[in-house]
Design a protein around this nucleic acid. Structure first.
Lengths: 348, 348
DNA sequence: CCTCCTATTGGGAACGTTACCACAATGATT
DNA sequence: AATCATTGTGGTAACGTTCCCAATAGGAGG
């Protein structure tokens, strides 16, 4: 088939009987155009079905209206939510979102970054994979960037938006304390990672600030999966005293879910025999039994705020903005109330 | 700060002491270039940190390397998974993905579509919102498109990729039959929507093909949310006979989850008193109690396949491809096995 | 020595848009 | 009546790339 060429502004101008300068003026809503010309051009646009070629505009203006976002995995509900927030916010600044999943691979991350630069995005959001030495060097990219999440602290010169983990941990531990729980046992992420260090540090700090020695806190490592949570819980159960009420604080919801499942398999009931506090706020926690009490990270607001900050960075604001959005405790049903001093047979 | 301009191929050429034509030849790996020139140009590229400007390439070549995808909501786990599949597949054809959420709004859909056309995407994937009269007219867009999901049938001239709902319904009903269940009660989506019609039709067809009259099947409408599922289940429970084992087949997992929760609130146990079959395969169903038996739509393969088909369409293949990917039954724990105590007598 | 062929290189146009400048026509001001 | 500002319009360059064509050099063959 003939696959007829898309009409350009020149076609519009010819159809309207004016020069392309004049047509461009009409299209950009510029002043100083006679009413009859405006009408003629708009008519021509309608007849031809003219659609502005943003590629040409981008090249000419040096602004592509494209924003990149690189997350570990877009199919992960948390990151999907972040992307959603970013998308909503970028629509407001008339930009489109280009997404990439790095799959926690440094190599992919690098390749995505190159693609972004070559596409001439106006800026990008990224959850950087590299944790320390591997940390990627953004500086020479010469492109506005805002970091997402915890690893942002490794790049002091870059703006970032993440959740306030210390605040979330604080809220969770406050809640556990109110409900009469002592030192919780932690199920964390893999060792030697910044995310884990931040979580553990926040817990320790909380107790130190209250003159409580946190060194006795038991920790088992997971890998942020349900299976990892089950295994960690299995280890806790193996060394637990008979009849002891276990209080678990998991570093993410999937591991918390695993802990609950593992307890059930061991014949223990949550929240009667075991209390579990999660960290994330994924939807799955809403429907499990018992529904998971957790600390929700503000995923969507993180995405929105990141775009706002990026917009500021793109408008060559020189200062570095580091935003930490507060987490929110979501009380559901996986933590028992032990605060009643009298031992009683509660309605389970 | 000076914000120095990004180097162009002209800068590279100057640095290497050759013309831009020659530099371009080297960069495109073209033949007929002397070895020393190749080396000089590559050196210059390294020194200057030259990155090809894809905007210019796109304009010149008429191919942007951009693919759009419009889904109802990227934060919905199902669609996130589809997007992930599309992303992986588009990487293989060296394209980047531009995402948009339509939020089931026709107006937004239209605006996104315009943005896509103006960005000069090479093609796009879309889960069209319009169900009938509202159906969007893609034809005049003059841009390769592949439709995602059930509404694709409304556009006979367009290629599409979706799940084989009839196949999934078939698998689910086969399973229920094997486990000794009779006619299930249906919790469907809102009336007067194509998706609902497809679901109900598939159920009816299944029974008619087996000489079973499906007209007695009870249906309650939901809205694809947990709350909607709970309300629908509440209505079923209100009219259920005492001691009757209820067999529920929900048109999506969230409503199935709602049904389970509602049953529990009514003091009924799933799967002892109530059996629930879902449809979707979302992760939340994996961790609820009981874990949800469901039919998983092949979300990621749909995304991948859609890009493959789009690639074919973009290479001006004239034929229309309509792909239906098979669903997969995921047996977990929400359907009771009634086949042992009761001998099923075939009616008809 | 002249011609032809090949290998290598440079020049220029084109993709579609916008911004700037120049120009003409009109009306207002001196 | 001459000058000036205002309004409307058209021409052209530039963004960065690739592709086509022309041009040059050197060597081979007559």
């Amino acid at each position: 088939m003939a696959a007829k060429r898309r009409p350009t502004i020149i076609d519009v101008a010819r159809q309207a009987g004016v020069s392309k300068s004049t047509a461009a003026r009409v299209l950009s809503g510029g002043a100083n155009v006679s009413p009859k010309v405006i009408e003629a051009v708009k008519l021509a646009v309608g007849e031809l079905g003219y659609q502005r070629n943003n590629l040409a505009v981008s090249m000419r203006s040096g602004r592509s209206g494209l924003i990149g976002i690189v997350v570990p995995d877009i199919s992960n509900p948390f990151w999907a939510e972040v992307v959603r927030g970013a998308q909503d916010a970028s629509m407001k600044i008339k930009s489109s979102l280009l997404i990439f999943s790095s799959d926690w691979s440094l190599e992919r991350e690098r390749s995505h970054l190159q693609a972004l630069v070559q596409t001439r995005v106006d800026g990008f959001l990224i959850n950087a994979i590299g944790d320390d030495a591997e940390a990627l060097d953004f500086a020479n990219l010469g492109c506005p960037a805002v970091l997402l999440g915890t690893t942002a602290d490794l790049y002091p010169g870059r703006s970032s938006v993440g959740s306030d983990i210390a605040h979330g941990v604080h809220a969770a531990l406050d809640y556990l304390g109110q409900r009469g729980h002592g030192l919780p046992k932690l199920i964390t992420g893999p060792q030697r990672r910044l995310a884990r260090a931040k979580f553990v540090t926040a817990v320790n700090r909380y107790f130190i600030d209250r003159d409580i020695d946190p060194t006795e806190i038991e920790i088992e490592d997971g890998d942020y999966t349900v299976e990892g949570g089950k295994r960690a819980m299995g280890r806790f159960l193996a060394k637990a005293r008979k009849g002891e009420h276990l209080t678990i604080f998991a570093a993410n919801d999937l591991m918390a879910l695993g802990a609950i499942l593992q307890a059930r398999e061991a014949g223990l009931d949550c929240p009667k025999d075991v209390s579990v506090m999660g960290f994330d706020g994924i939807v799955a926690g809403e429907f499990c039994v018992p529904p998971l009490t957790t600390v929700a990270k503000p995923a969507r607001p993180i995405g929105e705020e990141a775009i706002t900050v990026l917009d500021a960075v793109m408008s060559d604001t020189p200062d570095v903005l580091k935003r930490r959005l507060p987490c929110q405790l979501i009380e559901r049903g996986s933590v028992k109330d032990l605060s009643k001093p009298i031992k009683l047979a509660k309605t389970g």
